[in-house]
């Protein structure tokens, strides 16, 4: 269908590019060779039914799973062999689903840890203030244990932490999970704002209705394979997909 995201890697406008990536646990393969290109300065959203391998995919991109095959490129650098602990310094920001902050550490400590162990990616004071300004809800006592924040605040704190390390790509694992509808809308708005400030975003989302309006590109993952890649606005008018994915999630 659409060819605008499967571009030639040599003249790529992709921030993050995944080629033939295979992931799994032991001999059980869950992601069965996917090609994805997340365009620079855009929000790319991966949707798909439960068990399609979305979570496995994003964990693999963050480096928490060793790939069984294929390769992962960020801004032209090969990350495939790097474990999670080294990918952050290469510019991969990752916000896991739900367990996305250090619950027993204070809010201030969480923010401090965002960059303390990431050589060369510290934000300047100005950048830091700008990032924190995106998340007004985080104006809480720094000593407060992060586990006592509300779900929405935790999501904001997690995103702020990831951004402080100045990532080239921000990976978001279901940012809307467990949030009230009002917070979902707010979170998606924040995702858009972050992207508009120049951070490329690759996000996994179950809540297609909320995610599509802020997305530029959409990748549909089914049974560990890419079924479709498309511009988001094209998907919005495609009736079949609209029914298939928007209908069931709305």
């Amino acid at each position: 269908m659409s060819s605008d995201v499967t571009s030639n890697p040599l003249v790529s406008d992709a921030a993050l590019e995944v080629r033939g990536l295979r992931l799994g646990y032991g001999a059980t393969e869950i992601v069965k060779g996917v090609d994805i290109a997340a365009r620079r300065g855009a929000v790319t959203t991966i949707i798909g039914p439960n068990g399609s391998g979305k979570s496995t995919l994003i964990r693999g991109l963050a480096g928490l799973l060793r790939p069984l095959g294929g390769s992962i490129w960020l801004e032209g650098r090969d990350l495939t062999a790097l474990p999670a602990v080294r990918r952050v310094a290469e510019g991969v920001g990752y916000v896991p689903q739900e367990a996305n902050i250090f619950r027993n550490l204070g809010v201030a400590e969480n923010l401090r840890l965002a960059t303390e162990f990431v050589p060369g990616r510290q934000s300047s004071a100005r950048e830091r203030d700008e990032i924190l300004a995106l998340f007004p809800d985080l104006a809480v006592r720094g000593a407060l244990a992060a586990g006592r924040l509300s779900g929405g605040q935790r999501q904001m704190l997690a995103m702020a932490c990831a951004l402080l390390a100045r990532p080239s790509i921000l990976l978001l694992d279901e940012p809307s999970a467990g949030l009230s509808p009002r917070l979902v809308a707010e979170t998606m708005q924040t995702v858009r704002e972050v992207c508009d400030r120049g951070v490329s975003i690759l996000m996994i989302e179950q809540n297609v209705a909320a995610a599509l309006p802020v997305s530029d590109q959409v990748v549909v993952l089914v049974a560990g394979r890419v079924r479709l890649q498309s511009a988001a606005d094209r998907l919005l008018v495609d009736h079949n997909l609209h029914r298939l994915y928007l209908g069931e999630a709305a």
Binding site: A27, L64, V85
Partner: peptide, 12 residues
């Protein structure tokens, strides 16, 4: 017999 007893470790 064909299943591995040890899941592949998450590299960290």
């Amino acid at each position: 017999a064909s299943f591995p007893t040890v899941p592949a470790p998450a590299s960290s």
